[in-house]
Design a protein around this nucleic acid. Structure first.
Length: 532
RNA sequence: CGCGGAGUAGAGCAGUGGUAGCUCAUCAGGCCCAUAACCUGGAGGUCGCAGCGUUCAAAUCCUGCCUCCGCAACCA
């Protein structure tokens, strides 16, 4: 694994043509968890998300809403911020492609590429649907030459466009793939890129349009606006101040080889991130990202969540009812990161109950109760491994921490969190092995009992810390109950046996109350509009 | 032959060459500190079908087929 101590991580910038749904929340939450995890472990981390605000669709939707495009996106982006606040997203910056810090630099980038010969002016030829004002490819219009959007016939049309030359960089890209096998994860995505797009012959990329005006105008030829990808992808560097008066963040979090750069993205935009983005960067003479992680899609009951099917899940009411931590936990734990997953109310309830209520929450509750009962609420002093059981749970804990860190560094978040579950399960088992209620009846076993209590408290502390990037509120509630002072809620303390000695516990409310599936499953289904 | 996934216990999923695993549900037992929770054990799978494929060894690799899904067209 890399040992870089600085870290730059991004989500895609989402398109504000409509409200966000749980799929966007999934991607952003996972990215947030990685960012928080790195920060917690002492890395200097910069986390970016944002909005991709240009394009014909925005122009059209704004017109339909009787607003200017800028007014329109302002309203939608307001909703982005609300959702990210609800989800406790800890982004350091939020880039909007309509901001001057972005538009000006994109124009500069265009000029630079034009001057070094990577961009040329030509004609884009394709099937055009006049009512939809859209170009379509051969496969899209099919044999009947019908607009896939409105079903009306399309005509051959030409439009003057600027193109980015890909041929110049394609060999370098393939070489880059070979030299950096971890660049694109999962690996099957790389094969897909090579076999589907590169081997058949990669065409030049059209990067301007004249058919609409809601975009960044090209200085050299203002009837053109820059078309989507050169505009959108560059957000990752304009947000850091590339090409601005103050490029210090750009130097620190992008150009510095000591900084690890990771993009998290969805499968549908892999092609642009994995093929064109490295080319753009090479054209500009800049370093490429270390890794691009393609996450899976969240499906709904075996079919894709989509606006037209009306089966979109809005995360906000889920958060309102179950708390942000339950939703974050579900997203990170339930879906194997990298493959597609499906959202189901039953799974949501089960996951909350099994891992959070039964295992961890109950463990905390029974431990604090016993410390109250047997030691007047004070965590006994750590006295090493009093019985072999203590040694076992200590080595088990050390194993969990090690595996968790390795898995997290490898972006295997599902497996990393499963390690924490193993620890809380192991601690529950340790209670049965040591039978504290029996030890309590025998005064000569006082030391054993004390040691059991200490080890339980320590296990819970470790679980709380390892879960902290996910359970942003509940971890602190765990630490509250264990009596750990704010300044001692430090990651490195999880390896410091003895750090909890003498703390006064505070029994609080149930960490995660058990959910009643008979009530909650119908409730969630109702949210999804399936009971209507 | 457009591209890419998936098919493993009743349900939902891990598992890419070496004695089939996890969660839930179910059955039996234990415990009583705890959130009808926790712990132990059982039952339940010829790992989509075929090849008598490759191999000392296949859920895992190869070949063919079947079924489902996603992308290509709003949508991470």
């Amino acid at each position: 694994m890399t040992n870089k101590k600085r870290f730059y991580i991004t989500t895609p910038i989402y398109y504000p043509s409509a409200r966000l749904h749980i799929g966007h929340a999934y991607c952003t939450t996972l990215t947030d968890i990685f960012a928080r995890s790195k920060r917690l472990r002492g890395y200097e981390c910069y986390f970016l998300t944002g909005a991709d605000e240009h394009g014909q669709k925005i122009e059209k939707n704004a017109k339909a809403a009787g607003k200017t495009p800028q007014e329109f996106v302002d309203g939608i982006v307001e909703g982005f911020h609300k959702l990210w606040n609800l989800l406790e997203i800890s982004n350091d910056d939020f880039i909007r492609t309509t901001q001057e810090r972005h538009t000006k630099v994109v124009q500069d980038i265009f000029t630079k590429m034009l001057n070094n010969g990577d961009i040329y002016l030509d004609k884009y030829k394709g099937w055009y649907c006049t009512p939809c004002e859209s170009f379509w490819t051969d496969t899209q219009v099919g044999e009947d030459h019908i607009c896939p959007d409105c079903g009306r016939p399309v005509q051959v049309a030409e439009e003057e466009s600027y193109f980015f030359k890909t041929g110049k960089y394609v060999d370098d890209l393939l070489k880059f793939y070979d030299e950096n096998p971890k660049f694109l994860i999962p690996e099957s995505r790389k094969n897909e890129m090579v076999n589907t797009f590169i081997k058949p012959g990669l065409g030049d990329l059209c990067i301007s349009r004249t058919s609409f005006s809601w975009g960044i105008p090209i200085r050299e030829n203002p009837k053109h606006v820059i078309y989507v990808w050169l505009d959108a992808l560059t957000n990752y560097i304009t947000a850091l101040g590339y090409g601005s008066d103050d490029p210090s963040k750009f130097e620190k979090f992008w150009q510095d080889p000591e900084c690890e750069v990771i993009h998290i993205l969805g499968a549908d935009i892999t092609r642009f991130h994995a093929i064109y983005w490295p080319m753009f960067l090479q054209s500009l003479g800049l370093r490429r990202p270390d890794r691009e992680f393609v996450h899976g899609l969240l499906m709904m009951r075996d079919s894709k969540m989509s606006k037209s099917k009306g089966n979109v899940v809005d995360p906000a009411p889920l958060i309102e009812r179950y708390g942000v931590d339950a939703v974050r936990y579900y997203l990170a734990r339930e879906i194997n990161f990298g493959s597609d997953g499906s959202f189901s109310p039953e799974q949501f309830v089960e996951r909350c109950n099994t891992d959070l209520a039964n295992s961890l929450g109950n463990l905390l509750n029974r431990t604090v109760s016993m410390i109250n009962k047997y030691f007047d609420g004070v965590i006994p002093e750590y006295k090493g491994k009093v019985t072999p059981f203590d040694g076992e749970i200590e080595s088990f804990t050390a194993m969990v921490i090690k595996n968790y860190e390795d898995l997290m560094d490898d972006l295997k978040i599902t497996d990393a969190l499963a390690m924490v579950n193993e620890l809380s399960n192991r601690a529950n088992k340790y209670i049965d092995e040591t039978t504290p209620w029996a030890l309590a009846k025998d005064e000569s076993k006082k030391d054993e009992l004390a040691s059991v209590m200490y080890h339980l408290a320590m296990s819970i502390f470790v679980c709380g810390m390892l879960f902290k990037p996910v359970l942003v509120k509940s971890s602190d509630r765990i630490f509250d109950q264990l009596g750990i002072a704010e300044e001692n809620r430090v990651y490195d303390k999880i390896n410091e046996y003895g750090c909890l000695s003498g703390l006064k516990v505070n029994k609080g409310d149930q960490l995660f109350p058990r959910l009643d599936a008979n009530i909650e499953v119908p409730f969630i289904k109702d949210l999804m509009g399936e009971n209507k």
